[in-house]
């Protein structure tokens, strides 16, 4: 086995892991606070990519500057979705909630098909071609930027949850919404904000992904499937777990492809998924402790 390949795999795995973490963190927040499995999460990411695409191609806004647009837009979008669609089913049985988010998934995917067409779109930025070489290891600058933003975004969110009053309220609702209500927290508002933040994470991930990847209406599922594994791996609702889980899955995929064959890499991911569910259903770090 070629040592260069291993180094390359390590670096690629960590870089992709950062993105997986960002997608998974939004998912795990919604799961932890609202106790809802959001199947439409990947579609928020897809819409984030389209927003970035049109910002760049129509308005000429740099994709990274577009974060300033996509984060607030998707926060508000998430708040609206929660208010109009999720809130009415919060006390309904789980099947109803799953059907609702699944319905939203199909709706958004088909809306994207209708409005944006079935064909893939990608953007060409000047710096997409900038390659960073360290010894025999190569990676594109856009992947590094994506990684750094993902980590920064995650850390800011972490500090917000730990230190701010609102963050503490979100954590309180996540642990015991009834108790939170008793001590005077406006649980309805917290739900809205948590869903908004979760959606904003997906939107931001979409924006960061756009310079690296391409977008079509089906792209959401590709990433969200991995994100679900990350969420389960880190413990459902566990914030740091999602971050670490993202890196574990990123490294599993790239090292799996380097040591065995690329055909097996997703197999490895889902083997981990099944093993965790069987042996440690609360995830590596335990569930819902933000």
């Amino acid at each position: 086995m070629n040592l260069d390949t291993i180094f390359q795999a390590l670096v690629s795995g960590i870089l992709t892991g950062g993105l997986f973490a960002l997608v998974a963190i939004g998912l795990t927040m919604i799961l932890g606070v609202l106790k809802i499995v959001n199947f439409a999460h990947g579609e928020f990411l897809m819409l984030g990519m389209y927003l970035t695409y049109y910002c760049y191609n129509v308005l000429g806004i740099d994709p990274y500057l577009c974060l300033l647009i996509s984060i607030p837009i998707f926060f508000l979008f998430g708040v609206a979705i929660q208010r109009i669609l999720i809130n009415p089913v919060l006390k309904s049985p789980m099947e109803i909630q799953i059907l609702l988010t699944l319905g939203l998934f199909f709706f958004l995917q088909n809306a994207a098909l209708f409005f944006f067409g079935p064909y893939l779109k990608s953007i060409k930025t000047g710096y997409a071609r900038a390659i960073i070489s360290i010894g025999s290891v190569n990676f594109s600058s856009t992947k590094l930027i994506m990684f750094l933003f993902s980590i920064a975004f995650t850390l800011v969110l972490y500090v917000f949850l730990k230190k701010s009053d609102l963050g503490k309220a979100i954590r309180a609702c996540s642990e015991d919404s009834y108790g939170a209500m008793l001590v005077g927290i406006n649980v309805r508002n917290v739900y809205m904000i948590a869903f908004g933040i979760g959606t904003a994470c997906a939107g931001a991930a979409g924006t960061l992904l756009m310079p690296v990847y391409y977008v079509d209406p089906y792209i959401g599922l590709t990433f969200v499937m991995t994100a679900f594994v990350v969420v389960v791996l880190g413990g459902m609702g566990n914030y740091i777990g999602a971050l670490v889980g993202g890196f574990i899955i990123g490294l599993t995929e790239s090292l799996g492809a380097a040591l065995f064959t690329a055909s097996l890499k997703q197999l490895a991911t889902f083997v981990i998924f099944i093993l965790i569910l069987l042996l440690r259903p609360t995830g590596l770090f335990g569930a819902r402790r933000m």
Partner: peptide, 20 residues
Amino acid sequence: DFSYSKTATDLSSTISKLKG
């Protein structure tokens, strides 16, 4: 002889092996 899944999101490892 390298096969991969067409839904792969990253093929760095495969291409790195190919390069080797």
